[in-house]
Write a protein that binds this DNA or RNA. Structure first.
Length: 445
DNA sequence: AATTGGGGCAACCGCGTGTGC
DNA sequence: GGCACACGCGGTTGCCCCAAT
C-alpha cells in the first residue's frame, strides 16, 4: 500500500500537524455535531465555508463527504437487502461503475456504500469462480439488447473478413441537432470508429454525415458523461455484450498504446504521421507471460473533454453538402461500416434519451474534417494493454473489446468473451468489470 | 493465545465539470 | 477567454474487526 502522501495524516494520532493544518482521518462525534449544527443552520453546500465559520478543522471536501455518507438524514444504515442487492447488480450491468447514478436509484444509500459493496462482492465472486453477474441478469439483459439490435445487425454491411481482423473496435455515433434558428437543417451524424486492418495497424476515424432524424427508444443507454452539455451517447454494456462485439486482437498486438490522460502508457505508440490518419502500430507484447492488459481508460477520456472537443469541432466543421469520407483508414483495407448504431444527442438529464438503432446506407453523406480535427484525433487517448487474466482462458489471442458496438471477428465462441454471460473465475482482480463498459473501453474478456 | 488474512467500511486523492468574476 | 473556486465522481488506501489457523 502506498504511503499516505500527506505524510501519515491518515493516522489519527498524527492527524493534526499544526494549529492551521486541516485534520484528516476519522471523524469524532464532536466534529459530527459541529457539522450537523452547521448544516442545520446554513444548509448544504458551500462546504469550504464550514471550516471558516464553524471552526471545524476539516476541508470542505471532507465535510461534504462526511455529511453525504454519514450525517445527512434519511440515510439507510446496515446491510443491503436482497432487493437492493439485486438492483445493484442490475444497475451495474447497465451503468457500470457509475456509483452516484446507482445511488440515485437506491434511496438512503450512498455511492460509497454501493461502491464498497460492489468491490467486495466482485472480489468474493471472482475468488469463488462465480460469474460477476447472475445468469438471470445476463440473460435478461442479453435478450433486451438482442431485441433492440437485431434489426441493425440484419442490415449491417459487414466488412470483408479477409480485410479486417476486427472491426468497429470503437464505434460511437451521436446526432447533433440543427441550430434552433435553422430548424430545417439536417441532423448531423457523427461517428467515431477504430479499425484494425489485417496488417495489424489500427486506424481511428471520425466521420460526420447528415441524415433524417427518426427518434426511437432503446433501453439502458449509459452515456459517456452525463455532465456533458452535449453528451456523447454511449451504447450500453449490454448492447455490446449481447452482440458479442469485440476485437480479436491477435498476440501481435499484445500491447497497443496511445497516450492515456490518466494512465501511464503501457505500450509503444506509433502516432500517425499524417494528421488525417490515426494509426497505432501494432507492437509486440511480452510474450513470456502473455501479460496482456487492456485499458483504454475512456472514463478519463470522456472527462478530459477531448471527445467533447472532438465532436464539438466536428459539429462546427460538418458540412452537409460535401460527401466525402474524411478519413482514410491508413491501414489499408478498411471497410467503412455504415450500419452502426446511431445515438441521438443525449439529454444530460436522461440516460435513455437517445435514438437508434437505425441503419445508414453505404456511402451516406459524410462531411470532411480539417486538419485541426485530425490533430485532435492524433491526441485521442487510447491504450490497449492486455490483461493477464486472459491467460486463464487458454487463449493466445486476447480479445480486445469495447463498450460500444464493436464487432468480434474470428471469434469461434464469442460467449466466452462475454462477461455477463460467461464471467469466470479466471479473471483476476485486475479485471474491473466496469472496464468492459464504453466509458472504460476497450478491455479484454 | 498469537498470528494471519480477508471483509467491511471510512476517508482521502486526483481529476473533471460547472459557475461566477 | 482565463482564472479561481466549489462541487461531484470514481478510484484507492488505511484501519478495524473477526474468523481461521
Amino acid at each position: 500500500m502506498a504511503p499516505d502522501a500527506s505524510g501519515g495524516l491518515r493516522n489519527p494520532s498524527t492527524a493534526i500537524k499544526s494549529k492551521h493544518a486541516l485534520k484528516k482521518g476519522p471523524w469524532t462525534t464532536s466534529e459530527d455535531m459541529i457539522l450537523v449544527e452547521y448544516v442545520k443552520k446554513h444548509g448544504e453546500g458551500n462546504w469550504n465555508a464550514v471550516q471558516r465559520n464553524s471552526g471545524l478543522m476539516r476541508c470542505g471536501k471532507s465535510c461534504r463527504l462526511r455529511w453525504a455518507n454519514h450525517l445527512r438524514p434519511n440515510l439507510k444504515k446496515g446491510a443491503f437487502s436482497a432487493e437492493e442487492e439485486k438492483l445493484i447488480v442490475e444497475l451495474h450491468a447497465k451503468l457500470g461503475n457509475k456509483w452516484a447514478r446507482m445511488a440515485a436509484q437506491l434511496p438512503g444509500r450512498t455511492d460509497n456504500e454501493i461502491k464498497n459493496y460492489w468491490n467486495t462482492r466482485l472480489k468474493r465472486r471472482q475468488r469463488a469462480g462465480l460469474p460477476v453477474y447472475p445468469e438471470e441478469v445476463a440473460q435478461q439483459e442479453k435478450q433486451l439488447q438482442l431485441n433492440s439490435s437485431s434489426s441493425v445487425l440484419a442490415s449491417s454491411h459487414r466488412p470483408n473478413q479477409t480485410q479486417l481482423n476486427f472491426y468497429e473496435t470503437f464505434n460511437s455515433q451521436q446526432k447533433i441537432a440543427p441550430p434552433q434558428n435553422q430548424p430545417n437543417t439536417p441532423y448531423i451524424n457523427q461517428q467515431l470508429k477504430l479499425y484494425r486492418a489485417n496488417n495489424g495497424s489500427l486506424a481511428l476515424s471520425l466521420a460526420t454525415s447528415n441524415s433524417s432524424f427518426t427518434p426511437s427508444v432503446l433501453p439502458a443507454a449509459p452515456f459517456f458523461n452525463q455532465g456533458l452539455s452535449n453528451p456523447l451517447p454511449i451504447p450500453s454494456l449490454l448492447q455490446y455484450n449481447s452482440l458479442n462485439y469485440g476485437i480479436n486482437a491477435g498476440p501481435e498486438i499484445g500491447v497497443v498504446g496511445l497516450p492515456s490522460i490518466q494512465s501511464p502508457m503501457q505500450g509503444a505508440v506509433t502516432p500517425a504521421a499524417s494528421s488525417s490518419d490515426f494509426v497505432m502500430g501494432a507492437t509486440s507484447s511480452d510474450g513470456a507471460e502473455d501479460q496482456y492488459d487492456v485499458e483504454t481508460d475512456f472514463s478519463r477520456c470522456n472527462n478530459s473533454g477531448l471527445l467533447e472537443d472532438l465532436f464539438g469541432e466536428s459539429q462546427a466543421l460538418a458540412c452537409p453538402e460535401k460527401q466525402e469520407d474524411p478519413f482514410v483508414a491508413a491501414a489499408g483495407n478498411v471497410h467503412e461500416e455504415t450500419a452502426a448504431f446511431e445515438f441521438g444527442q443525449g439529454n444530460a438529464s436522461s440516460d435513455n434519451n437517445y435514438e437508434g438503432p437505425e441503419t445508414k446506407a453505404p456511402g451516406e453523406a459524410i462531411a470532411p474534417m480539417d486538419d485541426d480535427l485530425m490533430n485532435l484525433l492524433d491526441n485521442f487517448p487510447l491504450s490497449v494493454p492486455i490483461p493477464d487474466w486472459d491467460e486463464g482462458n487458454g487463449s493466445e489471442s486476447p480479445v480486445l473489446t469495447n463498450g460500444t458496438n464493436g464487432t468480434i471477428e474470428n471469434q469461434p465462441d464469442a460467449s466466452q468473451q462475454n462477461p455477463v454471460a460467461a464471467s469466470t473465475g479466471t479473471a483476476n482482480q485486475d479485471w474491473n468489470f466496469g472496464s468492459c463498459l464504453w466509458n472504460n473501453m476497450p478491455s479484454i474478456y
